[in-house]
Amino acid sequence: MADKPRIKLPKEAKKGEIIQIKTLVSHLMESGQRKDAQGKPIPRKIINKFSCEFNSKPVFSCALEPAISANPYIQFDARIDEEGTFRFAWTDDDGSVVTAEEKIALKA
């Protein structure tokens, strides 16, 4: 989980413009359904929640389930009415949270 998440969104947008946000995070997403070579179950370890806030207001969030493949890729749209900062958070089953921030400016 130490890897930096990959995020893509425009550096600036017009007021009222709808922009696309793409995120990719490195994670094993172990489902908890598999067994190891000795036949013992491999404990579940997934990212169970993703959330995105813009200037502390929620934009998008979702719960992730065990059937989602490794390195989850999430894409969504947002309307930009003011300049500010997006905050992204991925919550792991073990409680650790990976966060990232991206700024966006308004086009004159």
């Binding site: 890897d3 930096k4 990959r6 793409k22 990719l24 490195s26 490794a70 390195n71 890729y73």
Partner: peptide
């Protein structure tokens, strides 16, 4: 290049 999960390895 953003969606391609192989780039996680390139960055690592």
């Amino acid at each position: 290049d953003l969606e391609n999960p192989g780039f996680l390895a390139v960055e690592r």
